[in-house]
């Protein structure tokens, strides 16, 4: 009941925000928060619930972004039509990457995903068909509403809000299904989970593919909003890191953790960028590094886990008593 109340409050605030704070900067900020919340929530499925820390998720982000822009640049279609293509591409790529790398444990998986992401960025940078270093552009002047090219951030805001709601709904449904339980078990002890019949490799792979598919949608939306994609904005490793930190800061493995993280980090970054101008670019890395250290040191569960202390300490002496 209380949960439902909180949920309606959050939903009401989210719907009212761009109407109450209606300057173009504030609306754009709101849209960006939601966009990153989508990406971070998608990452959360495999990084948070399954505990497989992918640092290469930008590859899937890039699949979506390039598919959306490619639909326009190569076929003259609305970028919207690129979304299904991006999803298929991302899920397929996740399967190809996942089968060998999900066997790796801990840091080795993370390192493998970084390698894949950087390789992909270099390949795309040198592929003329994909615009090489210049990238691909979307429609400069919208031909009709389906081009989703707006001057105001307001339509993007509500579009992103709907997609975020769908992403969270999928995550919630997954977390409460057998798959979600298995993922959490695998995160704690893969060996024990397997001994109880959880098909670890398959479950992790499905989670990776689902996460990749949703991340590609975020990438497509990003490219539509900015009207272009290049190797840096679509496949740069910093995007992976941003997504990961947002989820970790808010609370990895918690439904609303990534949203909270995005709501804190995106404004922070936008404000520091507008203060420092171009000089601040390098500083972003420093801030992210500092945040990683702080999370690891003081609140590994993320900010939301502070409110998740429902579990009262229960020192057990003797495994309970037989009835």
């Amino acid at each position: 009941m209380r949960r439902l109340l909180w949920l309606s409050v959050v939903a009401a605030v989210a719907i009212a925000y761009p109407l109450l704070l209606s300057s173009p900067f504030q609306q754009r900020l709101g849209a960006l928060v939601l966009l990153y919340a989508i990406a971070a929530s998608a990452w959360n499925i495999v990084g948070g619930y399954a505990g497989q820390i992918s640092v290469g998720h930008v590859v899937f982000f890039g699949c979506g972004a390039y598919a959306a822009m490619g639909a326009y640049a190569k076929f003259g279609l609305s970028p919207l039509f690129g979304i299904p293509g991006g999803i298929v591409l991302a899920a397929g790529l996740a399967a190809v990457i996942g089968v060998p790398t999900l066997r790796l444990s801990g840091h080795y998986f993370s390192m493998a995903t970084i390698a894949v992401a950087e390789t992909m960025r270099l390949i795309v940078t040198n592929t003329d068909y994909l615009g090489a270093a210049v990238g691909l552009s979307g429609p400069t002047v919208p031909r009709n509403i389906f081009d989703l090219s707006f001057l105001s951030s307001l339509p993007y805001y509500y579009l992103f809000l709907v997609i975020l709601a769908i992403t969270l709904l999928i995550t919630w449904w997954m977390a409460n299904s057998r798959m979600g339980f298995y993922l959490r078990a695998i995160k704690d002890s893969e060996r024990a989970a397997r001994s109880l019949g959880a098909p670890a490799s398959r479950t992790k792979l499905y989670a990776f593919m689902l996460s990749a598919a949703l991340t590609s949608v975020a990438g497509a939306l990003y490219a539509m909003m900015f009207g272009f994609v290049d190797p840096e904005s679509g496949l740069g490793i910093l995007i992976s890191v941003k997504i990961l930190i947002m989820a970790a800061l808010g609370g990895a493995g918690l439904l609303f953790g990534p949203l909270v993280g995005a709501a804190i980090l995106v404004p922070l970054e936008e404000i520091s960028n507008s203060w420092l101008g171009g000089k601040g670019a390098g500083l972003t890395f420093v801030v992210y590094g500092a945040i990683i250290v702080l999370i690891a040191r003081f609140q590994p569960g993320g900010i939301l886990s502070l409110f998740k202390r429902r579990a009262k300490p229960n020192v057990d002496k003797g495994a309970g008593h037989a009835p």
């Binding site: 959490r184 078990a185 704690d188 002890s189 060996r191 024990a192 001994s195 493995g253």
Partner: peptide, 10 residues
């Protein structure tokens, strides 16, 4: 398991 493999987060 000899050393209990409890799912700690559950």
């Amino acid at each position: 398991f000899q050393v209990p493999q409890t799912f700690e987060g559950m």
